[in-house]
């Protein structure tokens, strides 16, 4: 029942989105969807409460004036141009960690393409137990389940595909050009707007599920960030001075991710590698790579290899393959 109700709401939104210039009468919507006028009215009210501005004129009907910039489940699903990614959407008004929730769902057999999403994540995390803080309602935290039939050694490449999908989507929706910092941080003018962390569930050498988690700073103001991270983090709003449609950004990321993913399965990593390298900010520059044990490797970032590992040439001319490190550009 709940699902059908939801679907009717999504169909109404779909109709409104497709007819931005005319008023759709309640009766017409009823006829098309086969529901009562009261049901239509209820769904319209619900959409309004989610931030959709809908004009209602007596004897003419309803017309959509604007969509909310806030994250909206209906807005993500209506017009989502993917076959699988995000089609099984699990939306939370707030949640501790989308990544944790998705881990459980993946263990319980949630299908390829399942997406868990919120704009209010309370205990987000990053690499090595670091926290990922996100001002309530102004950013996106999402975790995507992939079930690729690939050998384990190819899975790290998926994290680079994620970075390419994100930069394409951000540029398309906002016009902002972004940089990738190895392996998959998305930066603008040296500050981070998107962080990506991936976890894998395996059984022996079989990949059962890959869970790609993304944290995105979209509509936060500078002062919304804790002071200690203001010099390293920024948001799309801070950069452009205006708010952005978070649901549209999600839709677009999913679209590009699916397209790139299918292309990668078909053609391999080389095309992705080229797209990744064309936006990689550190390549060709001198960098410091801080390893886990505190050791710092300094040298020229030459590029990435076929696995996605960073190639660093030190001052003695020897090449180091780096699989995990914090990268600083000198």
């Amino acid at each position: 029942m709940a699902l059908t109700m939801k679907k009717t709401k999504h169909k109404i939104l779909d109709m409104l989105l497709k007819h931005p210039d005319i008023h759709l009468s309640g009766q017409k919507i009823c006829d098309v969807l086969g529901c009562s006028r009261t049901a239509v009215w209820k769904h319209i009210k619900e959409l309004e409460s989610e931030g959709f501005k809908i004009e209602a004129i007596q004897k003419k009907g309803y017309r959509l004036l604007s969509t909310p910039n806030e994250l909206s489940e209906a807005r993500i699903l209506v017009g989502l141009k993917t076959k699988e990614l995000g089609q099984h959407l699990i939306y939370f008004d707030s949640i501790g960690s989308t990544q944790k929730e998705t881990q459980h769902l993946a263990e319980d057999g949630a299908p390829h393409g399942t997406l868990v999403i919120t704009s209010h994540q309370m205990t987000g995390r990053g690499r090595l137990g670091r926290t990922w803080s996100m001002p309530k309602g102004k950013g996106i935290a999402m975790s995507l389940i992939l079930r690729p039939k690939l050998s384990i050694n190819r899975i790290p490449q998926l994290t680079l595909i994620a970075a390419v999908a994100v930069y394409k989507a951000i540029t398309e929706v906002t016009g902002i050009q972004t940089d990738i910092k190895w392996p998959n941080d998305i930066l603008v003018m040296g500050k981070k707007i998107v962080g990506i962390l991936t976890e894998m569930q395996t059984e022996g050498t079989n990949v059962k599920a890959v869970i790609i988690g993304m944290g995105m700073n979209i509509n936060a103001n500078k002062n919304d960030f804790p002071e200690e991270i203001r010099h390293v983090a920024t948001s799309l709003k801070t950069l452009t001075g205006k708010e952005h449609d978070m649901s549209l950004i999600v839709q677009t990321i999913l679209f590009y991710f699916e397209e790139l993913y299918l292309r990668y399965l078909e053609e391999g990593f080389s095309v992705i590698k080229w797209m990744w390298e064309s936006h990689a900010v550190s390549i060709g520059k001198r960098i410091n790579a801080r390893l886990f044990n505190g050791k710092v490797l300094t040298g020229l970032a030459k590029g990435i290899d076929e696995e996605g590992a960073l190639l660093l040439e030190d001052d003695q001319g020897s090449i180091h393959k780096i699989y995990s490190a914090d990268i600083e550009i000198e």
């Binding site: 790290p156 490449q157 894998m200 022996g204 696995e307 996605g308 699989y323």
Partner: peptide, 13 residues
């Protein structure tokens, strides 16, 4: 085991 910010929890089996 981590590579390229992909974290793989290894189980004892």
């Amino acid at each position: 085991v981590e590579a390229m910010k992909l974290f793989n929890e290894i189980e004892a089996d």
